[in-house]
Amino acid sequence: MTSYNTVNITRQDEIAPGFYLLSFKSPFLVHQAQPGQFVYLRCDNTYDPLLPRPFSIAMVDGEKNEVAILYQVVGRGTALLAQKKELDRFTVLGPLGRGFTLPPSGRLFRPKGGPKRIEPLESFPPSFLRIAVVAGGVGIAPLFFLLQRLKDLPDLTIEVLIGARSIKQLLLGPEVKSLSPQNKLHLATDDGSYGFHGPVTEILATLLKADKMDLVYACGPEAMLKTVAGLLTKYNVPGEISLEKQMGCGVGACLSCVCKTKGDKENSFLYRRVCKEGPVFPVQEIIWEE
């Protein structure tokens, strides 16, 4: 279920320099959205910029009937959005795309009829499924909503790894911590201004090396996701990642947003739509360029 609606902004805060958390009322999205899904929204009613912009659903508040997105100002669309105030209105299309596969009661599964998402780990007891959630910068957005949902599942241990350029861009650390006692937080900065000095993927490498992970979820810059994919292949751990591509329609009609994925036959490939088959893909399915 998806819909196209005009919504009211209930709150917008600059939570770090250049990063905004924007909440709006939408009982529909609150009920329909799954972690990893996104909304396609028009930053303003202009012909230039023309297209809506995609943003992951970052938070869902069932009590207030509100949904929030977390975004970084990187260009004209996001700059226009940052000027919006409480009570301003905009149109939202969503929820769109396919989100993360949640492990039901701590067990990895293969959805009925659908393509392979995560391999079942028969050898692993259904208790204490060990999950790593890896975020680079604003990539924490879909993962925070995922953590909101994982919170209610039993028998998980969750390592949350958040990396950023420097301490100023580290997002939602305290919120992750207070979300659930089962979240163990690891922070990393490229410049060493806080936490581990270096890429967040090095923390993941250490955890994987110690054989501590059963399943990994990741979102962040493409270079980071590529490293995550390499690590997961090396240690043979399943994972899902959320990808970004320039979109046109957002609903699967125009074939603009494709990424290269493995095809049915060996060495074959398929262009799959990030807005429809994604934005979340099993990590093994992606074919990385260069």
């Binding site: 125009c254 074939l255 603009s256 947003c257 494709v258 290269k260 262009y271």
Partner: peptide, 23 residues
């Protein structure tokens, strides 16, 4: 047809450029 390699779309002033390649 598999279509063209991405990126396939670019936004330009009051328009878009597409190169889907008939996927």
């Amino acid at each position: 047809r598999p279509g063209n390699p991405p990126p396939r779309l670019a936004e330009t002033p009051a328009g878009i450029l597409n190169a889907i390649g008939l996927q």
